[in-house]
Design a protein around this nucleic acid. Structure first.
Lengths: 151, 151
DNA sequence: AGAAATACTTAGCAAGGCTAACCTTTCTGC
DNA sequence: GCAGAAAGGTTAGCCTTGCTAAGTATTTCT
């Protein structure tokens, strides 16, 4: 098999893995009581500190009206709260409440637990291979390298 | 770091990778002209042969009314067609048209190309590590290997 | 001071998820 | 062989989450 063809094959299978993985994760997320978009937004707020609606929308790759509504819902349910910026009355900063912090951590723990359960099926040497490749994948997927060809 | 802790760490990062990967894939899918749910349903129809609405709904893990609507839209746009079963007048079998087949294959090629583009950044030895781990991940994530890849 | 830019909200639309309720058709048990 | 249950689909109607367009309030720039 040519190197070119081999790459294509790996990409194909990686694609399949990602899809199956995400399906499983979605199922786990359901038990948190928060929808995907809400959980995801909460995650940014919890780990990204207090931030504005606009910044949050950008981080989540949605438009501001969408984020306004998400934040309103999450605020209504007590997962986060807002306080206006004393220096700029236009912006409102969003921050997680203890309840919001907890729901996110619990959900995250569930997801990680599920994945860890799957990884437990590997032998120590296999686990080592996966660990190494995770580092590599991390760098190319999350990294700021040039985005896809896609013409 | 304990083996237990290490496992947790890898799971956590794998989770993050899956999310980032999904986001990128969604972007690529947009250019096919079909939304995620429609593309996904098309994939099942193309690879799973003619099948009923109920079976399709089950494969896609949605309820039948949802699938009815998706199929109606896809039929309206010429990506698939239905013909009633001569043996059971209740069911209607769904099948991809050539146009539907093509749009799916093109979309699939785009996704794989995007992933392959990312993987190209790896050195040959790194690629080898990833390739090996893909095989491992595949076996633990996909579980039953009966269903077609790429749903 | 007045114009432009920024931060956010409101209003209204579409897609895609759901449940409940409804046909039709098929199967089952008597 | 027929009444009623079960199964396959559809329709109706609700909710969430995306979007754009348009509006308000505040800040910044000239």
């Amino acid at each position: 098999m040519s190197a070119r063809r081999e790459l294509h094959d790996v990409a194909d299978r990686l694609h399949s893995i990602a899809i199956h993985l995400l399906r499983r994760l979605r199922k786990v997320d359901e038990s948190s009581g928060l929808s995907g978009p809400r959980l995801s937004a909460m995650s940014v707020v919890v780990f990204g500190g207090p931030l504005t609606i606009t910044a949050l929308a950008a981080a989540e790759q949605v438009k501001t009206p969408t984020m306004t509504r998400l934040v309103q819902a999450l605020e209504r349910e007590g997962y986060l709260r807002r306080h206006s910026d004393p220096l700029d009355a236009r912006v409102s900063r969003v921050e997680a409440t203890p309840k919001g912090h907890k729901v996110l951590m619990d959900g995250r723990a569930r997801r990680v637990k599920m994945l860890a359960g799957l990884l437990e099926e590997l032998s120590p040497s296999e686990a080592k291979v996966v660990r190494e490749s995770v580092t590599l994948l991390e760098s190319i997927v999350a990294g700021r390298r040039t985005v896809a060809p896609l013409e």
